[in-house]
Amino acid sequence: MAQVEARSVQAKPAQGRTARAKPWNWRPASIWALYAVGFVPAVWYFYLGATGQIAGNAVKEFEHLLGIWALRFLIAALTVTPLRDLAGVNLLRYRRALGLLAFWYVLMHFLTYMVLDQNLNLGTILADIAKRPFITIGMACLVLLIPLAATSNAWSIRRLGPHWQRLHKLSYLIVLGAATHFAMSVKVVTAEPFIYLLIAFVLVGYRALRPRIMRWKKARRLAESAR
C-alpha cells in the first residue's frame, strides 16, 4: 500500500545515521509539494473571482473550474496503477494525495454550487439533486468519495486490511460517474467531455484486463529467467 510505504520511508531518517551521511529525504516533501501545486488552480481562481477579475458569471466559471480539476485528479489517481504496470513508473506514493485532492475539489465544487451559486436555497438544491439526473450523479459521486477520503489514513488501511482494497474500488464507479456528470452537464457535444469519458472508460476497463496482463507479464518474466 502506498500509504504504508510512504510511512516506512519517512521513518528511516529518524533512526539517525551518522551526521555526515544524512541525505535529505525528498519524498515526503514532494508529496507536500504536490498538495501545494494541486491547490493552485482553486486558490488562483478564487483570488481572481474575489477580486472581480473573472468576466461574466464568475461563480459559475469558478464552479466549473473546480469540477473539471476534481475530474482531472480522479483520473490522475487512477492512472498510477496502469502507469506502474505498463511503463514501470512508480508514483504510488502520490496516489493518496491525488485522490484527496480530487475529494477536496469535489467538495469545493459542491460548496460553491450550494453557497455562492444557489445562496443556500435548500429547496432548489434538493429539487436539483432529486430531479436532474446529472446533478443526482454528481451528488452520488461526492457521497461515495466521503468513505474513501475518510479511510485514506494509515490507521484505516491497517484496520480494514483486505476490505480497504475492496472499498476503494468505488473509485472506478466514481470516475465513470464524474465523467458522465460532466458530459451530461454541457449544452453541446464537444470533444472535451468525450475525451474525459473515454479516459475514464479506459482506466476502468484496464482494471478488468489487469489480472490477465499481470499473468502474462509474470509468465514472460519466468520464461526469461529460465533461459
Binding site: G49, G52, I54, N57, V59, K60, L116, N119, R132, S185
Partner: peptide, 22 residues
C-alpha cells in the same frame, strides 16, 4: 430547462463573487 431551473437568474456583475444575488 430539463437540466436546470429557470425560476431565478444570476445578474452578471451584481453583488460580486460572495453574494452574487440571484
Amino acid at each position: 430547462h430539463p437540466r436546470w431551473s429557470q425560476a431565478s437568474e444570476t445578474r452578471v456583475g451584481e453583488g460580486g463573487f460572495f453574494n452574487a444575488a440571484r
